[in-house]
Simulated assay, not measured.
Amino acid sequence: MNKRILIIEDEEKIARVLQLELNYEGYRTESAFNGKTGLERAESEEWDLILLDVMLPELNGIEVLRRYRKKNISTPVILLTARDAVPDKVNGLDHGANDYVTKPFEIEELLARIRACFRTSVQKGQAEGNADELTIHDLKLNLGTRDILRQGKRIELTSREFDLLVYLLHNKNQVLSRDQILSQVWGYDFVGDTNVVDVYIRYLRKKIDYPFDMQLIHTYRGVGYSLKEPL
């Protein structure tokens, strides 16, 4: 069955161009032209992916994303952002966006990001089908409920931090390069500063390592990171 994509974009000409291009690629598409209507459509129907503009009337894209993620944590969302809207990009990723594309963009780039999101969704689905719980030492993560416990204490993570921890757990005791982490967790071939990995590793450490006596995340200078069982 052809995948369904919801386009939430207030510029109707852009939305129409996106629909034509995506339909040509075999996707089924529908559009909403403001945040309120877009959120209603997103929550009331099943979608395989959502393209979400940040600057929307009635309800901005970040707020749409925040509310949508309360009910749906699995459907991929790609943000469409202005060139200089760095805070929007960071805020969007923290609230569960899977990726973002900066306007103006080439349609080939957007199509590649969409394909990458679908590949990542398949990989996550396979992982969840293989095991509901991932563990290392005294840390437990349940893929179904998204509960994370260490020494019995509940840990709250953002969507991106959760994805990063899942990837580290699936590859525990292995040293992973920044490029590997970017490709698998961010879901596309990242072009730019790999420092984003360092930033999110730091976020993760503050929540799953620093409050506890035993360190699980280890840095290998010049190489990358590893989630390792204590010796």
Rank of each mutant, 00 (worst) to 15 (best):
Leu22Gln: 13
Leu110Gly: 09
Lys71Ala: 12
Pro104Ser: 05
His95Met: 11
Arg83Trp: 06
His95Gln: 13
Thr81Asn: 04
Glu46Tyr: 03
Leu49Ala: 08
Arg69Lys: 14
Glu11Phe: 00
Ile62Thr: 08
Val64Asp: 09
Gly35Asn: 02
Phe118Ser: 02
Arg83Pro: 03
Pro57Trp: 14
Ile73Lys: 15
Glu12Cys: 00
Ile114Cys: 08
Ile50Asp: 10
Leu80Tyr: 01
Leu39His: 00
Tyr27Asp: 14
Glu12Met: 01
Thr37Asn: 00
Tyr24Arg: 14
Asn23Thr: 14
Leu111Tyr: 11
Asn98Glu: 12
Thr75Phe: 05
Lys103Trp: 05
Glu45Arg: 03
Asn34Tyr: 07
Ala32Leu: 08
Glu63Asn: 11
Leu51Phe: 09
Ile50Ser: 10
Ala112Pro: 12
Arg67Ala: 03
Ile14Arg: 00
Asp84Ile: 01
Glu108Lys: 13
Glu106His: 13
Asn98Lys: 09
Val90Lys: 06
Leu80Pro: 04
Thr120Cys: 04
Asp53Trp: 11
Ala112Asp: 14
Gly92Tyr: 05
Ile107Asn: 08
Asn72Asp: 15
Leu51Ile: 07
Asp99Asn: 13
Ile73Met: 15
Val101Met: 05
Phe33Ile: 07
Arg115Glu: 14
Phe118Leu: 06
Arg69Pro: 11
Lys13Arg: 01
Phe105Thr: 08
Asn60Gly: 06
Glu12His: 00
Ser31Val: 09
Val86Lys: 02
Val64Glu: 10
Glu108Ala: 10
Ala97Pro: 04
Leu49Trp: 08
Glu30Val: 14
Asn72Leu: 09
Glu25Arg: 15
Ala32Cys: 11
Arg16Glu: 06
Asn91Lys: 12
Ile73Leu: 15
Arg16Gln: 04
Cys117Val: 01
Ala32Glu: 10
Gln123Met: 04
Ala82Thr: 05
Asp99Arg: 06
Ala85Pro: 02
Leu20Glu: 12
Lys13Trp: 00
Glu43Leu: 06
Cys117Thr: 03
Ile73Ala: 15
Ala15Gln: 03
Pro87Ile: 06
Gln123Tyr: 03
Thr75Asn: 07
Val86Arg: 03
